[in-house]
Amino acid sequence: MDDKEILEIYGSGQREAAFNQIVAKYSEKLYWLVRHFLCSHEDTDDLLQEIFVKVWQSLPSFRGESKLYTWLYAIATNQALNFLHKQKIRAALNFKSLSAEMENKIDEDPYFNGDEAQRLLLKAVGRLPEKQRTVFSLRYFEDLSYEDISEILGTSAGALKASYHFAAEKIKDEIKKYSEPD
């Protein structure tokens, strides 16, 4: 079912049916979006509940000015970033950095089944500044177009391209540095 049909169902008063269609179509996509931010299955599972509660509560205020999926991705991205902000404060109180915490999560994740290079990639992404990390995740992991990311983040496509370019260069340098033999 496409987004237009989902919105028609919602518009006809069948709120719950429309919401269930959103869950069926987007729950897995939003899971992977959030997973790449949080690097933990448990944290992602918890946050996903909150995201869909927010979607349910915010549906009445959705005016259709943006596409349904960019609206959903915006909610999920904001919730993930808020979660990371709280993690950062928690880490700082324990005299640790957020990126160090994220690296621990990647190393200890029982559901990580990538190779060493992918581990380096994820860690490098975790060390990026927030904006670059967000843009890189949406572009690289989610394959979203710059126009869609622009709608999600409210930033111009040009600025996003520059952000992605810098992020990609940093990550390539880091992977090269760690994978080169001594």
């Binding site: 089944n113 990538g114 581990r119 994820l122 992977i175």
Partner: peptide, 16 residues
């Protein structure tokens, strides 16, 4: 160099 990121673009997480 462009291929490094393309090569690594594969699933690295699983779920229960």
């Amino acid at each position: 160099e462009k291929d490094i990121l393309d090569k690594l673009k594969k699933p690295s997480f699983s779920t229960p």
